[in-house]
Amino acid sequence: MRFVETVWLVTRKDLLIEARSKEILYTTLFFAVSCVLVFAFGFVREGRPLGDAAAGILWIAIAFSGTLALGRAFERERQSETLRALMMSPIDRPALYVGKLCGVLILLAAVELIVVPLVGLMFQAPLFAHPVLMIGLLLTGTVGFAAVGTLFAAMLVRARSRDVLLPVLLYPITIPVIIAGVRGTAALLQAEVDEPMARAWLSMLVFFDVVFVTLALWTFEPVMTE
């Protein structure tokens, strides 16, 4: 019970700060929308999007804006050494990690709420034809990306050149998430919908999430101890 309580307290703290400034939400959202626009100029020919462009653009936008949000969320913790204060408080380290992860996830969910319909609209992609599978892919993909990202962003708070190191570390490790997200979404968007394929990618993402959340919970304490 204490665990859940701690998680809620940490998440609520993050959401409260964000609700007051709305800095990360607005900047990340604007960044994601500009990302989609920039890709639209690259992948739309004569008014029609190229083959699988929509799925790829959606996930690249999520990955890029996710990196931005993660970096900003922990930069905020660094500025007045509040992360150190959190680490010094007598709470479970895994609970702290899960709390931060939930905060990032809620933020990314808010971004996706805008970006997904936008991609559907701009690229004439039927993203809501299979809502359950689509939401499953988005949810598991975002959890996988944010699980690795939260750990790396948290540990990079102490490092030099952290802004550039976060994407450098995060993208190679999250390649399976990107592949699974893009291919799963593409399977739902193509002319003949390939539901078994989408389900296979979804189960891969669930498996990835389980392994990497477990690993992150396990490594968070030794990595964060100075």
């Binding site: 102490r158 030099r160 690993l215």
Partner: peptide, 21 residues
């Protein structure tokens, strides 16, 4: 190389994740 002091622990975490990946 560029992480500064304390990056050995962070790098160890990366290696662990890389192997699992």
């Amino acid at each position: 190389r560029f992480g500064g002091p304390g990056s050995d622990r962070l790098a160890a975490g990366v290696a662990l994740f890389g192997m699992a990946n």
